[in-house]
Structures are given as C-alpha cells and as structure tokens.
C-alpha cells in the first residue's frame, strides 16, 4: 500500500480562515479503485474544509494537495484536466448541488461536454447515466425542484460519473435524506463503487455509514486527524478517546442510553492535546505536549494514552 503513489493526497495540509487553522497538518493518501475511505468528524472538525482543499476549491496555507504525487499548484494544463476528470465531488443535496435553472439533462451534459461528448451521442449517454443510478431517462427534461431529494442525490451522482472519475469525494451524501431513501442511495454507491472500480472518500458524521462502505477510516477532531486505521478495528477497539466517545454516543437499536461525560466542555483546547478538556484519560502530559499520530496496534492514533484507551474500549456495544 505504501509503495503505490496515491491518486490524491493531502500532505501536511493546513488550511486557515484568517488566523485560525481549520485543517491542521493533515496527511491523507487516497488510492484509486474500489476502496472506501471514511472521514469521520462532527461539525467544526474541519472535514468539509479538508474535502474542499482536496477538490482544489481552496488554497492550502501550508503543505499541499498532490495528484499522482505532484502538487496541485504545479500541474500542467493537461495534468490539471486529468485531475479534474479523475476526482469528482458529490455534495449534499441541501446546498443546491444542481443548478435550479438547468434541466437535469443539461447539468449532466455539461459534464459530458468536458469529456468532449456533445450532441446526440451525449443525449443517449445521459439516459444511460440516469438509468445507471436507478432513475428513468425521462427525468432528463425535469428541473431539480421537480424531483424528490433522493432523486436529486442520484442525479448528482450521475453527473459525477459522467466524466468517468476514479475517485468520488462525497460530503455528507445522505445526511439530508430520509432513512429509507438513504439506505437505497448507500446501496447504489456500493454497487457503483464495484462496477466502476471507484475509490470513495466518504465524509460524514455517521459512523454506521462509514462502517458499511469504508475499509479504512480517519477521525478528525479540531482540524487534526486523531485516529486512522481499518474501520472495523477502529470502531471495535478505538485507540483515541474521541473515537471511543463518538462510537459510544451512537444510540443502538434497543440498546441502553449512550453514556455521557457530564461537566466536560465541548471546546477544543488551544495548547497541548485539543481534546484534553473533555477527555476522561487526560493527564498532565496532555496539556504540555501535542500528541502526534503513532502506531497503536492496527491503527495510528494521536494520543498519549492510546494503549489505555484500547484497553478501556471494551467493544461490548458491537457484540451483535
């Protein structure tokens, strides 16, 4: 895995709004083809900013985003075109991912035109694409507001596929949808990933969705990746207290009410470990030294007390 040059990667990436870094020295390699990678974080964790930087929509302040090992800023015209065609976003439905004035077909055709497909041949591809995501080709003449939320999300996926990418960056792709609709969109993503040999970067706050679609996962807190590893191990035996808190906070069907640490503030600390203010494992060292990612079993975690966390992280919740 480490010998292969990643298709897309964040390398020591820092993005700041004003003087506050929102993404802090993040390393995140993404490989092409049928691999799901989850990026888990709550609001304000910096996950969406990281995604926008990976998509070339934001300039990094330090570090870089690389495409096939070359910094985005240094790509030639042809390489840049290559980058645009291989990495495609799927944004959530909430923020008008489709132009409200354009018919669905025109939105998809705009993507096809970037591939040099226009005219009649494009029209038949539009139909194919719509059918591929489980929609009728006749929807091409509709405008976004005439579709349901689930249909719109499928169109967004179809548009992303139109340019035949190798990697989809999905930012909360199902969060705005009803659960039954969400389930079908997830199914679709699973199938498309396999059929098109697609890599998926799934950015979400929903652990269960990551567990279902992603082999590996990264957890972000306060702009940093605090834990990375194989999804199953990461969720069953978290090595970072935040991962553990996230997992334990998810209500399970028919289970007991999740535990909470009372009295802890939700703020991130400015010095030392950002998580220490709400961390039950925190000691003096956490205030003095910012932990860096280090190997802990199958995962890497940025925690001084990772071994203790693993021990405490009895996977009782996941017994089913």
């Amino acid at each position: 895995m480490s010998d292969e040059i990643p298709l897309l990667a964040a390398v020591g990436l820092t993005v700041a709004y004003g003087r506050t870094p929102v993404v802090h020295e993040v390393d995140l390699p993404l490989y092409a083809g049928r691999r799901g990678v989850g990026l888990i974080g709550e609001s304000g964790s910096g996950k969406t900013t990281l995604a926008r930087a990976l998509l070339g929509l934001l300039e990094p302040h330090h570090g870089e985003v690389t495409f096939r090992g070359r910094s985005l800023g240094e790509l030639s015209r042809a390489e840049r075109r290559e980058y645009r065609s291989q990495v495609q976003p799927v944004f959530q439905d909430g923020n008008e991912a489709l132009d409200p004035r354009m018919r669905v077909g025109a939105s998809i055709r705009e993507a096809l035109a970037m591939r040099g497909l226009t005219g009649r041949s494009a029209s038949s591809v539009v139909t194919d694409l719509l059918e591929d995501v489980g929609l009728s080709g006749s929807l091409a003449t509709r405008r976004p507001h005439e579709l349901s939320g689930g249909q719109r999300q499928r169109v967004v996926i179809a548009r992303a596929l139109a340019i035949q990418p190798r990697l989809l960056v999905l930012d909360e792709p199902t969060s705005a949808l009803d659960v039954t609709v969400q389930a079908r969109v997830l199914e679709l993503l699973e199938r498309l990933g396999e059929e098109h040999d697609l890599g998926l970067l799934l950015i979400t706050h929903n652990l269960a969705v990551v567990e279902r679609l992603c082999e590996t996962a990264h957890v972000m807190f306060a702009g940093r990746v605090v834990e990375s590893g194989p999804t199953r191990q990461l969720l069953s035996q978290p090595a970072h207290p935040y991962t553990k808190a996230l997992r334990d906070a998810v209500p399970t069907m028919g289970g007991a009410l999740p535990e909470v640490v009372e009295g802890a503030t939700a703020d991130a600390a400015d010095t030392g470990c950002a998580y220490r203010l709400r961390c039950p494992f925190a000691t003096k060292v956490c205030a003095l030294q910012t932990p860096v990612l280090r190997r802990v079993g199958t995962q890497s975690a940025a925690c001084h007390h990772a071994e203790q966390v693993v021990e405490a992280g009895n996977p009782g919740v996941l017994s089913s």
């Binding site: 659960v179 039954t180 969400q182 389930a183 997830l186 929903n206 652990l207 269960a208 969705v209 567990e211 279902r212 199953r232 969720l235 997992r247 998810v250 399970t252 069907m253 028919g254 919740v317 996941l318 017994s319 089913s320």
Partner: peptide, 27 residues
C-alpha cells in the same frame, strides 16, 4: 417500544428498521 422494534408487524416498520444504519451491523 420493545415489541414494535423486536417484532414489527407492519412491512413499513420492517423497512424502516432495516434502513437504519446501525453500528456493528456490517460484517
């Protein structure tokens, strides 16, 4: 809650239950 969730009688309830992404369900 126990009976509805453990032994749903209606198809829609079953569909809803199946659709809810739950941790530990995969694999």
């Amino acid at each position: 809650a126990r009976s509805v969730l453990a032994a749903p009688a209606h198809d829609y309830t079953r569909e809803l239950l199946a659709a809810v992404p739950t941790l530990g369900a995969a694999g």
